[in-house]
Design a protein around this nucleic acid. Structure first.
Lengths: 220, 220
DNA sequence: AACAACTTTTAGATTACCCTAAAAATGGTA
DNA sequence: TACCATTTTTAGGGTAATCTAAAAGTTGTT
C-alpha cells in the first residue's frame, strides 16, 4: 500500500505531464508540492525503484502504467469526495479542496464504491472536472479554455483550471457559477483581454489569465 | 495541530483510564496500540512535554485537560463517521471500525459540524456508544452490562464493548442487532453463563464473556 | 566552443516515529 | 527484608520524508 506522500507525488506528476504524457521536471514537481527540488530528486529515485515512475537523471520523470493507475485512482477519490462535500454537506466549492486533499488518502476500496453509489455515480466534480471510473478511464467531453472561443460564440462554464481560494472567490463575487452561460462579445488583442456577457445580463471584461482558467463547453 | 499518532495515543489513554480517570500503564497502552512498551515510554515523554498528558516515570499516565479535550474530539469524529458509514453508505456495523479509524484524523472543524448536521445530530453511534458534543460532553443514559441484570428482566441492546470483527460477526450470526430486546431467562452460577430470549423468539445461552460485552438499557 | 545561468543531484543533517536489547525500578512473596 | 518476576526505561539504531549547502550537469548566448 502506498503512503499519502507517494500518492501526492504520483498525482502531481500526472497533473504536470498533461494529456501528451510529457516528462516532468524536478523543479515543476517541487513547486507543485511545495517542497525543495532536492527532496523531489530523492523521492523520484525511490518511486523509480518501486516502478511507479520512469526516471532518468537530469531528464525528467514520467509515470509507469502502474503509477498512472494509482494516480487516476487518487484523482477519482478526490473528485468523488468533492461531490460529497458540495452535494451532501453543502460546502461552497471554494472550501472543499483542502478537505478532499485529505480524504483522498483514505484506504478502503469498498468505501469509494459505496460513496460513488451514494452520490448517484456522478460524471464530474463541482469544478466540472470529469471523474475517472473504477478502471481509470475518463468519460469524454469536448472542453475548451474560454480564450479559445471566437467573438460571438456562446458557451457554458463547466469548470476551472485554477482552484485557489482567491480565484474561486472572485468568481463567486461576479456571480459566475457552474452552468452559467458566457458569450464572447469582444476581444482586445493588445492585452488578450476578452469582453463577455454572463447569463445574457452582465457584461464585463476578463484578463487573458482569467480566460485561460475558465473551462467551457459549447454544448450543454 | 496534532499528528494522527498523537491522536491515537490520546484516544487510547482516554479509553484505558476509564470513567475514574485512573493512571494508565505503559504496557496497557502498548497493547492497545500494538506497539512496544519502549515506543510508548518515548512517546508519552513527548506528549508530556506538549502538556497533553501527566506522566511520572514508572507510575503511569493520565490525560491533562487539553489532552482529554483532544481525545474526546477524536472520539466524536470517529463515532460520527461510523454513523455516516452505516446510515448513509449502508455498511454493515462489522466493517466500519477500520475505516472510521482513518476518517477520524481528517482535520477540518467545519467538516465535522456539517457532517453532524447532515446526519441529523445523532446521539449515539452504530455500536450504541454515545457521541460527545462539540464541547466534549456526553449526553447521559443508564447503560448496563447484560451480566448485571436479574432473571426475568428485559432490556434493549444499545451497544457492545468489544468490537472485534469476530465478535460482531457472531452477533450478526445470531441475528442480534441494536435495538433487539433481550430477556434474561436463567442464570447458571457454576460458569456464570446466562440463558436469554431474543426478540421474544429465540432462546440461547451466552457465556459470561459475551454477556459482559453486551451493553443494554432497561428503558428504550 | 566556452561560459554564465539555471536545473538537478549528492552529501550530510533533522524530525517523528518505531524497534531490539540491556539496564533499572517496582512489587509480591517467601 | 531480600529476591525474583514483571514492568518500565534507556541506549542505540532504523526508516520515510524533509531540509540546506555544495557539487555536477545542462543549455542558451555569444
Amino acid at each position: 500500500m502506498q503512503s499519502s506522500t507517494t500518492e501526492d507525488y504520483l498525482k502531481a506528476i500526472f497533473k504536470l505531464s498533461g494529456p501528451l504524457k510529457n516528462g516532468v521536471s524536478t523543479n515543476a514537481i517541487s513547486e507543485e508540492l511545495s517542497t525543495k527540488a532536492s527532496s523531489v530528486s530523492d523521492m523520484v529515485k525511490k518511486l523509480a525503484e518501486k516502478e511507479l515512475v520512469n526516471y532518468v537523471k537530469y531528464q525528467g520523470t514520467t509515470l509507469t502504467e502502474e503509477g498512472e493507475k494509482i494516480a487516476l485512482h487518487v484523482i477519482r477519490k478526490h473528485r468523488l469526495w468533492e461531490v460529497f462535500l458540495v452535494d451532501k454537506l453543502k460546502f461552497g466549492w471554494d472550501e472543499i479542496h483542502e478537505i478532499a486533499e485529505q480524504l483522498e488518502h483514505i484506504k478502503s476500496p469498498k468505501l469509494i464504491d459505496k460513496l460513488d453509489e451514494h452520490l448517484g455515480f456522478p460524471k464530474s466534480d463541482p469544478h466540472g472536472d470529469l471523474i475517472p471510473d473504477k478502471n481509470g478511464n475518463f468519460p469524454e467531453l469536448k472542453k475548451f479554455k474560454l480564450n479559445k472561443l471566437e467573438i460571438g460564440e456562446k458557451a457554458i462554464l463547466i469548470g476551472v483550471s485554477e482552484d485557489s481560494k482567491e480565484f474561486l472567490r472572485y468568481l463567486d463575487g461576479i456571480n459566475l457559477k457552474l452552468g452559467s452561460s458566457i458569450e464572447v462579445v469582444d476581444f482586445f488583442s493588445f492585452d488578450k483581454s476578452i469582453k463577455v456577457k454572463i447569463n445574457n445580463e452582465t457584461e464585463l471584461t476578463f484578463s487573458d489569465l482569467v480566460a485561460q482558467n475558465l473551462n467551457v463547453s459549447k454544448e450543454k
